[in-house]
Design a protein around this nucleic acid. Structure first.
Length: 416
RNA sequence: GUGGGCGUGGCUCAGUUGGUUAGAGCACCGGGUUGUGGCCCCGGAGGUCGUGGGUUCAAGUCCCAUCGCUCACCCCA
């Protein structure tokens, strides 16, 4: 028996890093005033078709979609924004406060071919700021995304672009299609198809020929309408004011249809082909499109697997051992020790003991391998005398400690 | 969906042109020190060599198939 392709167990050594990532994220998000929202993993299929876009790869060939026992088509979420917006609309959260700053964490599912940094079940931190189209909100969200990388000690490049809005993008798109059609023979096979299906995606092509051509293609930044242009300028102003470095990338494109105006990515060169650790952008028409009020929003997603991979390449966090290991000799001592163990745990200490009745030497070895800070040795003599030996494994210091039900002598020594 | 690389104890790997009982390091267990860890020494347990066929006197090694893992394309966090 083994796990499904693209599905992975996260063993304790790795789980420690996950806790660090999530813990750091929660702390930063709290400081930025973002609140957690928990949403279901399964949704009606239509939610994703309507938001991500019918013609995207995700919807066309990557979703885990099946019918439940009532014959309804349901889908395991491939991303986090759609479910959060559904919940936002369903519970009319916009009536509770003018701007909702929300985040959610959890598994997402896409049936792709697995590779480094890409699994079929993967995990994202998904962040949404809903209710304002002020460029300052863009800067705030971008600053928060970057801060997570900073506080995890990870290096990443911030790239910025604008995709325009329904007023200016169609005109740009037409201009681009005209240009690309004129140079059709210079495009790679894939891109020739893209000219019809999704021309903006051509800009993102990695083939050398296409890149060369793209350099001469009309740039979106030169085609923005005045409001979009001004929006971008103000976002840049605010990023500068916060001293957040970034580079403009006019070729950056989104794989999901709902993005408008500001888009950004956090890129690393340490993950092979999967260079984006986080990405996001504005989606001003999406809430309305999903049947809600006409409210703007901006958000981003971070890939947890990718953050953990980066952390692993940097350093291995040492496991923190238990505060106390109880070494008991003989059954009477073990029986007493077991109750002592419980008291220690209820008092807030992490504590372990041997339950296989092994010799002292073996138990000391166990304690050492667990990186325990102290060992409390209880044999028959100690049991009778109401005194035990407490050994500090780092300093090798040993001292007699009186045993009593309240652990009055023991606890202070361990909690220091 | 397409292409490359790789499958040998829990982990990382070695294994000559096919040739005796398939090895090492780490990890694990025990002993040296019968109530004191890390270092050292000694010993132990653990592998149908991914699986199924084929070639051969003989296959971990060669051939075919299959499954799995992995990297890349595609796409994306």
């Amino acid at each position: 028996m083994q796990a499904l392709k693209g599905f992975k167990d996260i063993l304790p050594d790795e789980a420690r890093l996950w806790q660090r990532v999530e813990g750091t994220a929660r702390d930063i998000f709290r400081r930025f005033g973002f609140e957690e929202i928990k949403v279901p993993i399964l949704e009606k299929t239509g939610l994703f078709a309507r938001s991500i876009g019918e013609a995207t790869d995700i919807v066309e060939k990557e979703m885990y979609t099946f019918s439940d026992r009532n014959g309804e088509s349901i889908t395991m979420r491939p991303e986090g924004t759609a479910p959060v917006l559904r919940a936002f609309i369903e519970h009319a959260l916009h009536l509770r406060r003018p701007i909702n700053r929300l985040f959610t964490v959890g598994p997402m599912f896409r049936h792709e071919r697995p590779q480094k940094g890409r699994l079929r079940q993967f995990h994202q931190l998904s962040v949404e700021a809903l209710g304002a189209d002020h460029p300052r909100l863009d800067a705030e969200v971008i600053a928060m995304a970057r801060q997570l990388l900073v506080e995890l000690g990870l290096k990443a490049e911030l790239q910025l672009n604008s995709l325009g809005c329904p007023d200016c993008r169609p005109a740009y798109r037409a201009k681009l299609v005209e240009f690309l059609s004129g140079h059709r023979e210079q495009l790679c096979e894939d891109c020739r198809r893209r000219v019809e299906s999704n021309p903006l995606r051509v800009l993102d092509c990695k083939s050398a020929n296409c890149r060369r051509l793209n350099a001469e293609a009309p740039a979106i930044l030169g085609s923005l309408c005045a409001p979009c242009d001004q929006h971008l300028a103000r976002v840049r102003q605010d990023l500068d004011a916060l001293q957040i470095p970034y580079t403009m990338n006019p070729f950056m494109v989104r794989g999901l249809d709902y993005y408008t105006r500001t888009t950004f990515e956090l890129l690393t060169d340490a993950l092979g082909a999967q260079s984006a650790v986080g990405a996001g952008g504005r989606y001003d028409g999406l809430v309305k499109q999903l049947g809600g009020p006409d409210l703007p929003g901006i958000g981003f997603a971070m890939g947890l697997e990718r953050l953990v991979l980066l952390l692993q390449e940097q350093e291995q966090a040492a496991a923190a051992g238990p505060d106390l290991f109880l070494a008991c000799l003989g059954e009477p001592a073990a029986a007493y020790g077991f109750t002592l163990l419980q008291k220690c745990r209820l008092a807030g200490l992490s504590a372990l003991m041997d339950i296989q009745g092994r010799g002292l030497k073996s138990q000391m070895k166990q304690a050492d391998r667990l990186h325990a800070r102290h060992v409390l040795i209880i044999g028959e003599d100690e049991l009778n005398a109401g005194q035990a030996v407490l050994r500090n494994l780092d300093s090798k210091e040993e001292r007699q400690v009186a045993l009593d039900d309240e652990l009055t002598a023991l606890l202070p020594l361990l909690q220091s």
